[in-house]
């Protein structure tokens, strides 16, 4: 196993991979990092989310073009495999973003519970915003579930 140090969206990561695959891993990380940096000014979670969405978009575009051309050559089949691997990576990033949002919610709830003086009447507008966000995320969940 080889150790690889990556930096994506400003955060360092220590990963392991099979010997000989280090350069491939570094190249893939560079693609993700480039996408993340294309959305400056946001939070790390938002940068990674946009990177995941853009990579998923790239992967789907690539796959659609390849399917239309009915690939016969080895090079085109390799491109399909690459697109699928990037799409899988993008979905993994999106799942990670969802997990981070869930963690952020837990932090928000913990902060609210640890501040009883500010709780009952403090921010009714925030409570209304939470309800509106719940409506919107439930609508998003329905849309994601209906994706083909």
């Amino acid at each position: 196993m080889a150790d690889v140090k990556l930096t994506i969206a400003g955060r360092p990561y220590d990963l392991h991979c099979e010997d000989g695959q280090e350069s491939q891993l570094v190249e893939l990380a560079a693609v993700v990092d480039e996408k993340a940096r294309a959305m400056p000014g946001g939070t790390e979670v938002r940068q990674l989310l946009f990177a995941a969405l853009m990579l998923a978009d790239d992967a789907q575009d690539a796959k659609g073009k390849i399917e239309k051309s009915e690939p016969q050559s080895d090079s085109l089949r390799a491109a399909v495999a690459l697109a699928e691997s990037r799409e899988a990576a993008a979905r993994e990033e999106l799942r990670a973003a969802v997990a981070r949002e869930q963690a952020a919610f837990k932090e928000l709830e913990a902060a609210r519970q640890n501040a009883p003086a500010a709780s009952p009447t403090a921010n009714p507008s925030n409570n209304r915003a939470l309800l509106q966000i719940a409506d919107r995320i439930e609508a998003l969940a329905a849309k994601v579930e209906q994706l083909p």
């Binding site: 799942r95 969802v98 997990a99 869930q102 609210r112 966000i133 439930e138 969940a141």
Partner: peptide, 24 residues
């Protein structure tokens, strides 16, 4: 709205995020 209602909203958000995660 009171605390219970905001907790309900957070619960709804968490369940919706779980649905998105499962769908993905």
């Amino acid at each position: 709205l009171d605390l219970d209602e905001s907790s309900l909203a957070i619960g709804r958000i968490e369940r919706a995020l779980s649905r998105i995660e499962k769908s993905l």
